[in-house]
């Protein structure tokens, strides 16, 4: 069974420690949601797991199916089955979406066993249809000039085509209109399987109405400070974070220099 195991992960950016010991274990079939106020380290966790070059890991351990993730290059992590739908996907002019997707699919295949053009187009088009994306997005340059919501849909399209073992969604619901939220959530739900784990970073219950999480965690000050079931997200939605802070004696929830 797929397991992502994060132990006491610490990470720095530009000399500033953001993650201060995150511990979390996620198994195949489970959906974990991470919530938390702005600037508390949620995206940093996602970036550190994916291997963003700006985020220096200063401590802790992460394994994906017992393989040391932190030792791997970014592309090796992806090849090992990790996928991150980014909060702010890059725009790359001159590279069409379909050329990019095909390169990404072929990167997972042996030389000589590349996906045929026809099969690729058929698959891409059918998945795009499922996400109600205009076929023209295949020929547009990667994310260039895409609206916020279009970028998010494109992230989900990549997730579906690449069939990762472990998925991190960083605010995939931000910028989505009501219909798109449902469509994207359906896309995610269709990917749910006993051997695929999810870590969903979100601010709102509305996404979790569609995708019911098994566990909900609250992040503050670069740590997971509270965990619970789906009811925790409901309470946060209704009452905000003050009660959590009070309960834990936190006055400033953001990441602070100590």
């Amino acid at each position: 069974m797929t397991t992502l195991k994060i132990e006491e992960l610490r990470s720095k950016i530009e000399g500033k420690e953001i993650l201060k010991g995150v511990t979390l274990e996620i198994h195949g079939g489970e959906i974990h949601a991470i919530m938390g106020p702005n600037g508390t380290g949620k995206s940093t966790l996602a970036s550190a797991l994916m291997g963003h070059p700006k985020y220096e890991v200063t401590g802790g351990k992460v394994t994906l199916d017992n393989e040391d993730l932190l030792e791997m290059e970014v592309d090796e992590r992806a090849q090992a089955g990790l996928f991150l739908a980014m909060q702010y996907p890059s725009e790359i002019a001159g590279v069409t979406n379909s050329d990019f997707l095909r390169s990404a699919i072929n990167a997972r295949r042996e030389e000589g066993d590349e996906i045929s053009l026809i099969r690729f187009i058929r698959e891409m088009e059918s998945k795009m249809k499922g996400l109600e994306m205009n076929p023209e997005f295949a020929h547009r340059y990667l994310n260039e000039g895409f609206s916020g919501g279009e970028k998010k849909r494109n992230e989900i399209l990549q997730m579906i085509l690449l069939e990762p073992k472990f998925v991190i969604l960083d605010e995939v619901d931000s910028g989505l209109d009501i219909d798109a939220l449902r469509i994207v959530a359906n896309g995610v739900n269709e990917m749910r399987s006993p051997d695929r784990g999810f870590l969903i970073i979100t601010h709102y219950q509305r996404l979790l109405n569609y995708i019911t999480p098994d566990f909900v965690h609250v992040m503050m000050q670069g740590r997971i400070v509270k965990s619970g079931g789906p009811e925790l997200a409901h309470r946060l939605e209704a009452e905000g974070y003050d009660w959590v802070k009070e309960e834990l004696g936190i006055t400033d929830e953001t990441v602070r220099e100590v």
Binding site: D75, A78, S90, G94, V95, F100
Partner: peptide
């Protein structure tokens, strides 16, 4: 570097990612 990271996060090797970005630049 951000673009290279994005492409690599999809499993594309560094050299292939650089090539895609450069080719895109010339496209």
């Amino acid at each position: 570097a951000e673009q290279i990271y994005y492409l690599m996060s999809r499993g594309i090797s560094r050299s292939e990612a650089e090539y895609l970005v450069i080719f895109g630049f010339l496209a």
